[in-house]
């Protein structure tokens, strides 16, 4: 089976304004199968965002290549959605207009995206908030809107860069449970950057652990937990086993 996205031998060197070269990514290989949820975890500045941007075709890798369904071509706009650490909504648009924006840019017919927007607003739990403006919503609710926006054009792949890094712990847990549900309902492939070990374990089929800059993949851990995951799982001993393994691979000492 060909992967949806293959990152083959990708490295990235940035050149700073003063002409110094920064090797952000050493060499990374990564394969995303369809409907797989893969988390990237690693120290800050190790090139996780860079890797996401390379996968999105927003940055050219210095070496290596990104294959989409086995073809050496940049991923198309229709094929992926993006979510950042903050919602990055447009404050002059209502929540509904924000969610519809990518569909409008991609010239998807109104008859297709209007009903979809309504469905997505419900799916992410924002029913009744569609006509409000972003600043009238909490950070967590804004982030739900950003997730709905990333799904409006029905892409196969979601690229999420620490999407819950800026919300409080309780909201974060709720959002994790919902993201897990949403992506199962919507059958998406996800590449998810996080700093949270338990979040990575809870959401992922695989956790990719990266080393410090110049980064390499240090370890890949398959998370053999049931597909349908709920809050109860977090307290189970199996969950703990995986958390400890990721923790150990990250270079910490086990408690």
């Amino acid at each position: 089976m060909t992967s949806l996205v293959s990152v083959n031998g990708v490295s990235k060197t940035y050149e700073t304004r003063r002409g110094e070269k920064v090797l952000a990514i050493g060499e990374v290989n990564l394969h995303l199968a369809e409907e797989e949820f893969v988390s990237l975890i690693g120290p800050s500045g190790c090139g996780k965002s860079t890797l996401l941007h390379v996968a999105a075709g927003l940055l050219k890798p210095t070496t290596g290549e990104v294959l989409v369904r086995g073809e050496n071509r940049p991923i198309r706009a229709e094929e992926f959605g993006m979510v950042f650490q903050d919602a990055v909504l447009f404050p002059w648009l209502t929540i509904r207009q924000n969610i519809e924006m990518p569909a409008e840019v991609l010239r998807i017919p109104k008859a297709v995206y209007k009903p979809r927007a309504t469905e997505l607003i419900e799916l992410v739990g924002l029913a009744g908030f569609g006509d409000m403006y972003p600043r009238e919503l909490s950070g967590g609710m804004q982030q739900r809107a950003a997730i709905a926006r990333s799904l409006i054009h029905d892409p196969e792949l979601l690229l999420m860069d620490e999407p819950f890094g800026a919300v409080d712990a309780i909201t974060r847990e709720n959002l994790n449970i919902e993201l897990q549900r949403i992506r199962r309902v919507a059958r998406k492939t996800v590449l998810f950057v996080t700093h949270s070990i338990s979040e990575a374990v809870f959401l992922s089929n695989r956790v990719v652990i990266m080393s410090a800059r110049p980064s390499k993949v240090r370890a890949v851990i398959d998370i053999d937990l049931p597909a349908d995951r709920g809050p109860a799982l977090i307290e189970s001993p199996e969950f703990d086993v995986f958390v400890r393994r990721v923790h150990r691979e990250l270079g910490h000492h086990a408690h």
């Binding site: 993006m82 903050d86 447009f90 840019v105």
Partner: peptide
């Protein structure tokens, strides 16, 4: 404006005109 608003538009492969009028 937020740099990431423009990254979002680039991810959608939006034209110069669209980036101008929408962002």
């Amino acid at each position: 404006g937020d740099e990431r608003q423009l990254i979002l538009m680039r991810a959608l492969r939006a034209s110069w005109w669209t980036r101008m009028t929408k962002v």
